[in-house]
């Protein structure tokens, strides 16, 4: 996988993003996250993720963007997983979201398959979650995420090397009898410090509400730090 191919993919993704909703609202923000994983033996592991959302700009494509630099929310996610095969794991967890004084609770179930090929790795993640928020109907989601990890040098990602990670996720949501679909496209550039320590960054594009309403777009600058203890 050469750097040229990765840059080509980024340009392709960027063109998809620009063309997808030329006349509608958008928001831009930062999405830093820390992800800590601790193996417990016999295939069990626990995972903790802390993610923070910070908005920077908002507007629509017909006017100049307005600077709205403000902290939005924090997510605290706890997941326990069990390997159920060579490449498969079954997980369950809980998300605790703090948005101002509002507390949101989410239960999560997921199944992941990671396949290794000669020059890349491909991961499928199927998950369901149930979100409970005060004064809001419960939201139920069914999600599918496909992720490809491509080394930018050699046939595998080794310590001290860069890699590309491209994710595409489809989130089917049902809330108070109303169905919605959100699509995410996330091309990231990653650096592996050690096998247990990786940093990834890049755009995270999300579009939702486009089935029956004006699409709502969010452009995040995503920064993910993965640590295995």
């Amino acid at each position: 996988m050469s750097t040229k191919i990765f840059l080509g993919l980024i340009i392709f993704c960027a063109s998809f993003i620009q063309n997808s909703d030329a006349q509608n609202d958008y928001r831009v923000g930062l999405l830093p996250a820390i992800n800590v994983n601790k193996p417990l033996g016999r295939g069990w592991a626990v995972n903790f993720k802390y993610e923070l959302r910070q908005f920077a700009l908002q507007g629509d494509y017909s006017t100049s963007p307005v600077s709205t630099f403000k902290y939005d929310l924090s997510d605290f996610i706890f997941i326990a997983s069990k390997k159920v095969g060579l490449n498969n794991s079954l997980s369950g967890g809980y998300l605790f979201r703090l948005r101002g004084t509002t507390v949101v609770h989410r239960t999560i179930q997921q199944f992941t398959i990671v396949n290794s090929y000669n020059a890349f790795r491909l991961a499928h993640r199927i998950s369901t979650d149930q979100t409970f928020e005060p004064r809001e109907p419960a939201e139920f989601r069914l999600r599918y995420r496909l992720t490809a990890e491509l080394p930018l040098n050699g046939e595998s990602v080794d310590p001290g090397e860069w890699y590309a990670k491209i994710s595409n996720e489809y989130l089917n949501s049902m809330q108070d009898g109303i169905y919605d679909l959100e699509i995410r496209l996330i091309p990231l550039l990653g650096y592996q410090f050690t096998d247990n320590n990786k940093l990834e960054f890049g755009p995270d594009y999300r579009i939702s509400s486009f089935l029956e309403n004006a699409p709502r777009s969010v452009y995040w600058l995503s920064v993910n730090w993965f640590v295995k203890l």
Partner: peptide, 27 residues
């Protein structure tokens, strides 16, 4: 949240320093 982030970053940085012992690289 800012204090928590600082705490977590410092804690994990210590882990990074300890983990840099294995070495295998192909290019």
């Amino acid at each position: 949240p800012k204090n928590l982030t600082t705490f977590v970053i410092i804690f994990l940085s210590l882990n990074v320093i300890q983990a840099q012992t294995k070495f295998e690289k192909e290019y």
